Simulated scan of single mutants.
Amino acid sequence: MSSVVTSRCFGCKYTDCVVVCPVESFFEGEQMLFIDPEICVDCDACIPECPVEAIYAEDDVPPEEHPFIALNAEMAPKCPPIVSKKAPLAAE
C-alpha cells in the first residue's frame, strides 16, 4: 500500500510534501506530482503537508479518485524525481 496523489494536485503542484518524504517517492509531472507505490513506505508524512488535501493513503482514496491509484503507478516511473520544494504552479 502507498500514498496516492489525486486530482486536487493537477494544476497546483505544491511541493511541501516532497521535503518530508523519507524515501524520495515523489516524481514530478508537468501538471502534478506522482508517488511511486514501489518506493513509498506508507509513512503518511506527506498527507498533512499537502495544502490542497490531494494526497490520501491508498485505502482512503475516494471512489471518484480511484483512477489516480493506477495513474500514480504508471506515471511515477516516467517522470523525474523531486526532493526539494519548488514554487507551485498555482503561484506562477
Score class of each variant (00 low, 15 high):
residue 44 D to G: 06
residue 15 T to E: 13
residue 92 E to I: 09
residue 92 E to L: 13
residue 38 E to W: 07
residue 10 F to M: 07
residue 68 F to D: 09
residue 91 A to R: 10
residue 87 A to H: 06
residue 85 K to R: 13
residue 32 M to H: 10
residue 87 A to V: 13
residue 13 K to L: 14
residue 92 E to K: 11
residue 82 I to M: 04
residue 35 I to H: 03
residue 20 V to G: 12
residue 42 D to T: 10
residue 29 G to R: 01
residue 56 Y to P: 03
residue 78 K to A: 13
residue 14 Y to K: 04
residue 85 K to N: 08
residue 81 P to R: 15
residue 73 A to P: 04
residue 24 E to Y: 12
residue 72 N to W: 05
residue 26 F to T: 01
residue 19 V to A: 15
residue 83 V to D: 06
residue 83 V to H: 05
residue 67 P to R: 09
residue 29 G to Y: 03
residue 61 V to E: 09
residue 74 E to G: 01
residue 88 P to I: 13
residue 12 C to N: 15
residue 50 C to K: 02
residue 54 A to C: 10
residue 12 C to K: 14
residue 70 A to N: 10
residue 88 P to S: 11
residue 80 P to Y: 05
residue 20 V to D: 12
residue 86 K to S: 11
residue 12 C to T: 13
residue 13 K to R: 15
residue 29 G to F: 01
residue 81 P to G: 00
residue 18 V to L: 04
residue 72 N to R: 06
residue 54 A to N: 06
residue 78 K to H: 10
residue 65 E to A: 08
residue 18 V to G: 00
residue 13 K to M: 12
residue 91 A to M: 12
residue 87 A to G: 04
residue 21 C to H: 06
residue 86 K to I: 15
residue 53 E to Y: 10
residue 50 C to T: 02
residue 43 C to P: 05
residue 17 C to I: 08
residue 66 H to C: 05
residue 81 P to V: 04
residue 18 V to S: 02
residue 55 I to C: 07
residue 62 P to N: 08
residue 57 A to C: 00
residue 32 M to Q: 14
residue 86 K to W: 06
residue 61 V to G: 07
residue 87 A to Q: 14
residue 31 Q to W: 14
residue 79 C to R: 06
residue 34 F to S: 03
residue 68 F to P: 05
residue 17 C to G: 06
residue 69 I to K: 13
residue 73 A to E: 12
residue 88 P to N: 12
residue 29 G to L: 08
residue 61 V to F: 00
residue 62 P to F: 00
residue 46 C to L: 05
residue 63 P to I: 07
residue 72 N to S: 08
residue 68 F to K: 04
residue 54 A to H: 03
residue 34 F to Q: 00
residue 42 D to S: 15
residue 84 S to I: 01
residue 71 L to M: 14
residue 55 I to W: 01
residue 36 D to Y: 03
residue 33 L to N: 02
residue 89 L to Q: 07
residue 31 Q to L: 14
residue 75 M to A: 11
residue 39 I to N: 02
residue 65 E to S: 11
residue 34 F to W: 10
residue 10 F to Y: 14
residue 22 P to N: 05
residue 71 L to S: 00
residue 11 G to M: 04
residue 76 A to M: 04
residue 16 D to R: 11
residue 41 V to L: 09
residue 30 E to Y: 07
residue 33 L to H: 06
residue 44 D to L: 14
residue 82 I to Y: 00
residue 31 Q to P: 00
residue 20 V to E: 13
residue 88 P to R: 10
residue 50 C to N: 00
residue 59 D to V: 08
residue 69 I to Q: 06
residue 43 C to S: 15
residue 22 P to F: 02
residue 68 F to Q: 09
residue 36 D to N: 15
residue 21 C to G: 04
residue 18 V to R: 04
residue 86 K to G: 00
residue 92 E to C: 06
residue 71 L to C: 01
residue 66 H to Q: 14
residue 22 P to E: 07
residue 50 C to I: 04
residue 31 Q to G: 00
residue 19 V to F: 08
residue 72 N to P: 01
residue 13 K to S: 14
residue 26 F to W: 02
residue 91 A to S: 11
residue 80 P to L: 01
residue 45 A to R: 15
residue 90 A to I: 13
residue 44 D to M: 09
residue 30 E to V: 10
residue 78 K to W: 00
residue 70 A to G: 13
